[in-house]
Design a binder for these strands. Structure first.
Lengths: 262, 262
DNA sequence: CAGGTTAGTTTATGGTGTAAGGAGTCGCAA
DNA sequence: TTGCGACTCCTTACACCATAAACTAACCTG
């Protein structure tokens, strides 16, 4: 199920996202046994360990020794909790990318870090991009990217497109790897086993597969003669593909820079 | 919940995906009132109209005047149904991109078509990319892209990265727009209304937002002086961003081509 | 017509998010 | 000191989800 937060009370939503670090003043009633931060941390731990699909209010509550309903005094609903998780996780992103050697190495470092971050917290990729979460760390992360990209000197309207392209690329590339890992963990079937069961069936059902899809066959073949391996989009290739794709993208940005200067 | 198909019976899964068009021979027992194709079509209709979140076995069954359980004689489970939906939908993609004027215009046309396809069937973006569905139309779609990309003359290992980058970009760019539309439909709150409720809160809670996040503020401002509008990532900008991003990407590919030739 | 196979139903199980209401806890004002 | 009101947390309940199991009814083949 896709969740959209903040439908109800935009003010409550924002005050949670931008909540100050320290606890509030003493209030009547029993001492709160939990904090929003503890709940968000527990939720992040659940999602990190078992994936977004396993994130339920009950699971988070159990991890804290409470029931699911106990969380609702701290967090209005699950969608809001996911937003809080998202923003808090983004806070763990590196922020410093020196521009001394120009924007390109900085952007390369940024892309590698963001990719690694997504692989550490794959569930982040599943948070709906529809409405930005508008939390402090989301803006901080955007600020980091823009600081690097401003080094290109491109004008604003172009920079928007470039920022989008870079973001999409990193998200997508990380998403494929994350999905593969998650599937392997969730099903208990390794990628190799999975392909081993399916590749003979392809020829059986596909009826002359090699002739019908020559280019797909060609691109799926492994370059070095490491035989008994028929895995087009495997994690092993993913690093290399990321490198190639990123280089192409950065070359394109350089072309845009050259055009804007010349 | 994220679903992974084909854990159980790889053979059954493949035979469904590659099932021939005509109906099978007569079998004992009552005449089947449904067909796999009818079920898949109904499921696609549900997903197109109400989004992937609304796709339940019950909803599909109701659309066909049956109970949810009736579907299980045709389709082993929901994950498999989603795979069938995915592959069938991909069959609606255009396939012909003449290369007479070179690969670049062909790739531009391809990107525009695929983006439009994703916007017509946003749920396709939510099908897990972990394990390829391995259906006939998925391969056909890959074949189409590779036929265009082969025009670059790039070697295989580079082409893999390029194909990935292009795919990720189009997916990502379409995904943002699709998510925004879906959110607006699901919540009944238009994007304008949503931003109108939140932008003042940003300043209120963000405490000197403009100074803390100068670049985010800068990039969010609208270029033409069309005031009373504070929408950084709106659908309106999306077309333009797509254009810019795609141009950058294609420029990068051209650079790779030049490098490989020179 | 009998047997066996199949289509589709009903029922049941264990999961989900969360609304409603109640029990106990504590700060503060009278 | 007492009690009110605010507060935390629980139990219960509801509507939904996927799907396993058992059952009925339809139909082909012997």
């Amino acid at each position: 199920m896709v969740l959209y937060a903040g439908q109800g009370d935009a003010r409550r939503s924002m005050s949670l996202l931008w909540r100050p670090a320290g606890g509030g003043p003493d209030r009547p009633g029993p001492k709160p046994g939990l904090t929003v931060d503890a709940i968000v941390d527990a939720a992040i731990a659940v999602a990190d360990e078992h994936g977004m699909a396993a994130l339920s209010m009950r699971a988070v509550g159990e991890r804290l020794g409470r029931t699911a309903m106990a969380l609702y005094t701290y967090v209005p609903n699950k969608a809001e909790l996911v937003d809080l998780m998202y923003d808090k996780a983004l806070g763990r992103l590196p922020v410093d990318y020196p521009l001394e050697r120009g924007w390109r190495p900085a952007l390369e470092a940024w892309a590698a870090d963001v990719r690694a971050f997504y692989l550490r917290h794959p569930w982040v990729l599943q948070v709906s991009q529809a409405r930005p979460v508008l939390g402090p760390h989301e803006f901080a992360a955007l600020e980091v990217l823009l600081r690097v990209l401003r080094g290109t000197g491109l004008e604003r309207s172009v920079l928007r497109g470039v920022a989008g392209a870079v973001t999409q690329f990193v998200r997508g590339a990380a998403g494929v790897v994350a999905d593969v890992r998650q599937a392997a963990r969730a099903t208990g079937v390794s990628d190799e086993e999975w392909w081993f069961a399916r590749s003979p069936l392809l020829e059986e059902f596909g009826g002359g597969f090699g002739e019908r899809f020559p280019l797909s066959t060609w691109i799926g073949e492994v370059d070095p003669p490491a035989a008994d391996d028929c895995t087009p989009y495997l994690e092993r290739d993913a690093d290399w593909n990321f490198e190639v794709g990123l280089r192409v993208l950065l070359d394109g940005i350089e072309a845009a820079v050259a055009r804007s200067v010349g």
